[in-house]
Design a protein around this nucleic acid. Structure first.
Lengths: 147, 147
DNA sequence: ACTCCTCTTTACGTGAACGTCATATTAGCA
DNA sequence: TGCTAATATGACGTTCACGTAAAGAGGAGT
């Protein structure tokens, strides 16, 4: 795939994708000679989608994402090496790394969910107070209910 | 209170607070004559805290926050007018407005929670897959368990 | 070989959200 | 009243995350 299609598929722009490559968020297909077109796989599309998602949902800077996605980057390498090695000990190591990376992301997401849930609770409380006041107003002043 | 204390209490800086005033996020105490020090109340501190919180948690721009916090701004006015009026019909109106504003915020927060929860599910799934593989590796290659 | 669209590289531009002086003024205190 | 720390105002600087324009090259179809 070429850059335009990837941009369309990910809801970004060619500039954005080149920028992500520029800052090291996306690996520049090392085999590509300068001047020739970049080409992408479905894996790249998936990665870009994940970048956008995490960026939007967690509000992370691209540098923070870089950090976090070293996990993903590593996972790709890990999967490859995993296929190639027959040493079960090495396989175990690779799986544990992978698990650690995912755990980091999970913590982040869960933390954020917790904060938002607290906020939701506070808002709901306010909302209920207003509703209660409204209700008491209705019973007080309802037409024909004058004490 | 003066700006330095407010900055400390909210974890921001004086510049930030002045900036928020500049763009209309914070009302400039209308009674203050130009050149004299700004002064703040606890309500201002609370508002700034809420701004920072929503900004960080939801990743909203200050302009979006401006929109969203028209709700809060209005609530303050509403509370004041609510105290002053005796017309129950008007009181009902004010309460309903207030409720609407809170509902908007609730929707936003809940939507974000839902998205994050989906993400959490996906991550958990991945995590479980890795764990399962690890487990199968252990039973296969556990010392002394050679078939 | 030619065409036309997409892409590449380079480089300058932009908006948001402040940071950072410089200079003048104010408020609290001895 | 004088000193000092905190503030006010104005203006320019900065970082991030791209947008945009210019000039040339790639590549698929005819």
């Amino acid at each position: 795939m070429r850059i335009g299609e990837v941009a369309a598929l990910t809801g970004t722009t060619a500039r954005t994708i080149r920028y992500y490559e520029e800052i090291g968020l996306l690996a520049e297909g090392a085999e590509r000679e300068l001047g020739k077109h970049r080409c992408y796989s479905q894996a790249d599309v998936d990665r870009i989608r994940e970048i956008v998602r995490l960026k939007d949902l967690l509000g992370l800077s691209l540098e923070q994402l870089s950090q976090l996605l070293e996990a993903e980057t590593a996972r790709a390498d890990i999967r490859r090496e995993f296929q190639e090695t027959d040493d079960p000990e090495r396989q175990r190591e690779l799986l544990e790394q992978s698990g650690g990376h995912i755990a980091t992301q999970l913590e982040l997401v869960r933390g954020r969910i917790a904060e938002l849930t607290r906020l939701e609770g506070e808002l709901r409380e306010r909302s209920e107070r207003v509703e209660a006041r409204l209700a008491s107003l209705e019973t007080q002043a309802a037409p024909g209910v004058r004490a």
